[in-house]
Design a protein around this nucleic acid. Structure first.
Lengths: 163, 163
DNA sequence: CTTGCAGCTACAGCGACTGTAGATGTTACG
DNA sequence: CGTAACATCTACAGTCGCTGTAGCTGCAAG
């Protein structure tokens, strides 16, 4: 018989996995997806296992795992007897990273909200948003510089002071 | 007189602004910072206005504004008579983007927490983390594909089905 | 006069793709 | 069977926002 069910082209694999065609080739190049057999006309032919692997990669990527960690997870996934501590560690590391990014973004959102709330919707000259950026610019690096910044510093296109 | 106070080298400007030397040159290249005058020995000489501008850029970048928007904000900042709606719009756009990223990351963290919570800390064969990735891999793209994925798909190195 | 750091230009590299050019393969229609 | 339209092939450039490097030159101190 030799029924090779589910052997699909790269385009079909892309459709089935939700990974773009170019990205599939990219993953192959990076060793995340083994090189598939080719047709007579040199076209890649993928089986269900490839497609499943692509979906695994896609999901892991959606969760924010960088490619090296995705590779690690894939590696673990096909060694069923290995202890799962490693996978746990990777997931926890990733969770910590994600939480770090969330709190970073939250303080950032808070500052943006404050900026927007203060905006008088008048002229740029009195715009709190730009003032905030300029003011913070002046004080944000006090730990770098001892010099007391004069408050009349222009943000404009630095016209160079004549010699 | 022609007292050109505060003319500093690039290294000093870096220290004062918190922007790295290479990054300052990069910003100049990208048109965010005007090319400063040079010394006899061809070295850049920055004034207070340049340093203030660098601090403005740095703060805007810290808030996550991409460079083109930073450029827009800088543009606005030195046109004091322009209405500040544009700055407001940029800030609001940025806030929306940040909030979008936060909620994305939060659902992501939720999923990671669920994965980790379910982990039996046994063998990979029963590891919920890897199963979650594989399972979701199988259902996550149902909207792409009509084909009902068989549940015995291996994630392992796609050994190609013989012809 | 030498030492050593700071600055100069120009370019390669990161991560994770995306998009393109130009050649070939495959398929549908007449 | 021909042809048109589309899919795939390889190979490489571009994206973003830097960072780091190599191999120079400038400059202040001892």
């Amino acid at each position: 018989m030799s029924i090779t069910i589910g052997e699909v082209t790269i385009g079909e694999a892309a459709r089935l996995s939700g990974v773009k065609v170019n990205t599939i080739r990219f993953y192959e190049d990076r060793g995340l997806l083994p090189a598939p057999p080719r047709s007579d006309g040199n076209q890649r032919l993928y089986g269900d296992d490839h497609v499943a692997r692509l979906r695994f990669i896609r999901h892991a990527r959606d969760l924010g795992f960088p490619l090296p960690e995705v590779a690690e997870l894939l590696d673990l996934a096909h060694r069923p007897e290995a202890p799962c501590d490693a996978a746990d560690a990777i997931a926890r590391r990733q969770l910590a990273e994600v939480q770090r990014r969330i709190s970073q973004l939250q303080s950032l959102a808070g500052e943006l909200e404050r900026m927007i709330g203060f905006c008088a919707h008048d002229r740029v000259a009195t715009c709190r948003i730009l003032e905030t950026l300029a003011d913070h610019a002046l004080c944000a690096t006090d730990h770098h510089a001892g010099r007391d910044a004069t408050s009349d510093v222009a943000i404009g296109t630095a016209s160079h002071a004549g010699p």
